[in-house]
Design a protein around this nucleic acid. Structure first.
Length: 647
RNA sequence: GCCGAAAUAGCUCAGUUGGUAGAGCGACUCAUUCGUAAUGAGUAGGUCUGGGGUUCGAGUCCCCAUCUCGGCUCCA
């Protein structure tokens, strides 16, 4: 008999050799039906693997990450089997489960290219194979046997993988006619795979190395129920609907121009209004938190970046220097604001009484991102950081962290980012020689960050080895309505730049000391933040932020003058409104969603013109009745005041 | 940067094996003066991203460039 301990701590006894499935059956038949994999002592295994020792035991269903992982990993094998049947002679690379589904890197036989047109063929074959309910048979195999087996099949990529494995740890899994090198875990058979979708085909270098051959990467996703697949596809559609590039065009927020250059966004009037609102909002908060605004130039001399160390590190892969008529004189577009701010700090002697010194700037920076990496507003070559640098004494780090966190939390609350999490990036636990700064200061700062998160009640994940060489950091991620994770705000401690720029302050002891520098950007960049905000809200910005709070629609040309009058009176009362008098087809405009991003539609006609009123329709909520112009303005004003009272 | 796929009117897209460039929406004009998911008629808009080539003939086939998209890699 062996003792099996369940996650709730209860213990049951089973015969040695019992399988996960049998344990599930002993609990309930329903559970046995739903369960996909299990784990013993934290290691996920198949349901049909005999358990021969006392163990901590967990069952995984679809809702568990481990269950999905086994499901999709098995699906990857299933897709490989399908591809092997469709294109015999295909060589296989690796085929892991990923966050949403799985992929397999394959090298089809010469002359074959897998294209989108082939997806249905692959899906059908996979569904057909899944219905055979083939078991996945696990087999330990020696290294020599493995090399021989895959060598005979001509699977050179597999053999390369095997070379790196340790003899005795190698297993294969076989379902039907397909055998794959794999350590598992898997479903015990392919029967639960009920809905199959091949989602994309792309290419990827073998082992991510651009000098190695290029394999075809086929992406797919599978589900135990067709309904789940439909939901997933609906979610993808929703994501497309929310795409900030699409909404940005519809709302006329920003544009790109081939002539200006790729990755260089231009903010249109409405987008600029939105951005300026955000900037004002943050400036107001920063004023309260003791920041001073500065402005620095868009270029800096080569010497500045040699001092900062960026020249040595990034010179070649960046925008190339700007030359002047003077021989040998070089300037660079600034890739960050820190060196300029360091220069401001160093401009005059500083006392401990001056610290913390907080200098802020909406600083536009230019970085030569790889062309393939550019994406809408989220990845661009010129963007504006809501940057600030805090110069403080080491013992002030925690306090400053708390204050920056306050700012970030105010912003998140104001913009309804409810699902956010934090990641603390600390030093590697072992290799510490690569980090600059004293052990004492690092220790202090790392503790400060952890404590600050605890004090704020912020659930934070600690990642060791993720810190930059110059200091630990805290990043904020928000999850949008589709569960996608976005990195926004960041707070970073820096011991490096103060050192390089020889920044000092005079302490109470009348000695010179090195200040600590904190970089922080609550939005990250205006571009990326607006992109995330668009996708998060699907273009329905909070009323205080949206470029158009109301559009006035005269029911006919006769009331155009009245509409303009309404608009003027609303603007005087602080409501951002515009008139749309291009035609009288109000109904169709509403139906065609031409006005879908406008919170309030105000319809005016004879009755309204006579009584000085507007007929108010709140988008998505319906008619709110006829009200006096000033009453509507007050209503909007009240809503905005209510939204912004906590800022 | 690499691999692949696109690029046609302001927008969304169609354009069959190479044979006169299309639709819907939008814009404009005229009529209609209309109350919340479709008023009617008409007009204007395109060197089919740019440049070469093949061909009697190229939106369509080939080459090069640009930009966009999906990935890879990268991200101070």
């Amino acid at each position: 008999m062996i003792k099996i301990t369940f996650p709730d701590g209860s213990v049951r006894e089973y015969d040695s050799g019992v399988t996960g499935l049998q344990i599930a059956e002993s609990i309930s038949s329903r559970l046995a039906q739903d369960v996909l994999a299990c784990s013993i002592n934290g290691k996920t295994i198949e349901l049909n693997r005999p358990i021969t020792e006392d163990a901590e035991f967990t069952l995984y269903k679809w809702d568990d990450a481990e269950g999905k992982h086994a499901f999709w990993h098995t699906s990857a094998h299933l897709m490989a089997e399908a591809i092997q049947e469709l294109w015999p002679g295909t060589q296989f690379g690796i085929g892991p489960a990923i966050e949403n589904g799985f992929y397999y890197d394959v090298m089809p036989p010469a002359g074959v290219t897998i294209r989108e047109e082939d997806f249905v063929k692959i899906e059908k074959k996979m569904a057909e194979l899944a219905q055979r309910k083939e078991s996945l048979v696990r087999k330990p195999i020696t290294k020599a046997e493995a090399l021989n087996f895959f060598g005979n099949l001509g699977q050179t990529y597999k053999n390369e993988l095997i070379e790196d494995l340790e003899d005795g740890s190698i297993t294969t899994y076989t379902q039907g006619n397909f055998t794959d090198l794999c350590r598992g875990p898997h479903l015990q058979n392919t029967a639960p795979i009920k809905a199959v979708k091949v989602t994309a085909v792309s290419s990827a270098y073998w082992r991510g190395d651009e000098k190695r051959p290029m394999l075809t990467r086929v992406y797919g996703i599978t589900f135990p129920k067709k309904k789940l697949l439909d939901e997933y596809l609906a979610m993808i559609e929703e994501a497309k609907r929310r795409d900030h590039r699409k909404i940005g065009k519809e709302m006329e927020l920003f544009m790109f121009s081939e002539m200006v250059g790729k990755g260089l966004p231009m903010w249109l009037p409405k987008g600029t209004m939105l951005r300026l609102k955000l900037e004002e909002f943050l400036k107001e908060i920063q004023k309260r938190f003791g920041y001073q605004q500065v402005i620095t130039p868009h270029i800096g001399s080569k010497n500045l970046y040699i001092t900062s160390g960026h020249y040595a590190k990034y010179g070649k892969d960046s925008f190339q220097p700007i030359h002047t008529p003077e021989e040998g004189e070089e300037y660079f577009l600034k890739p960050m604001n820190c060196p300029h701010h360091c220069a401001i700090y160093g401009w005059k002697p500083r006392s401990y009484k001056d610290l913390p010194l907080r200098i802020a700037e909406f600083g536009t920076v230019y970085r030569y991102e790889q062309s393939g990496e550019l994406h809408g507003l989220t990845r661009v070559r010129g963007f504006t950081q809501d940057d600030a640098h805090i110069f403080c004494r080491p013992e002030q780090v925690k306090d400053e962290f708390l204050r920056v966190m306050d700012i970030i939390l105010i912003i998140f609350r104001a913009l309804n980012f409810e699902n956010f999490e934090a990641q603390i990036s600390l030093r590697d636990k072992v290799n510490r020689e690569k980090y600059i700064g004293s052990e004492d200061n690092w220790e202090k700062a790392e503790q400060a960050i952890i404590e600050a998160c605890e004090e704020k009640g912020l659930p934070a994940r600690i990642e060791y080895g993720e810190a930059a060489f110059y200091g630990p950091k805290l990043d904020f991620m928000v999850k949008d309505a589709l569960g996608r994770r976005w990195q926004l705000g960041t707070i970073q401690v820096d011991y490096n730049l103060p050192e390089r720029f020889q920044l000092e302050y005079t302490g109470t002891d009348n000695q010179k000391h090195r200040p600590v520098m904190i970089h922080r950007a609550p939005f990250g960049s205006m571009e990326r933040f607006v992109a995330v905000l668009i996708e998060h809200t699907a273009g329905k910005f909070p009323l205080w932020l949206t470029p158009d709070q109301a559009v006035i629609l005269p029911i006919s040309d006769k009331y155009n003058d009245y509409a303009k009058d309404v608009c003027a009176r609303l603007e005087m009362a602080g409501v951002r409104a515009s008139v749309d008098d291009r035609s009288e087809k109000i109904g169709r405009k509403i139906r065609d969603n031409e006005l879908k991003h406008i919170p309030y539609l105000l319809i005016v006609g004879e009755k309204e013109a006579e009584t000085g009123t507007v007929a108010v329709r709140k988008q998505g909520e319906g008619d709110e009745g006829v009200m006096a112009i000033e009453d509507f303005a007050k209503k909007v004003g009240d809503i905005v005041a209510d939204m912004t009272k906590n800022f």
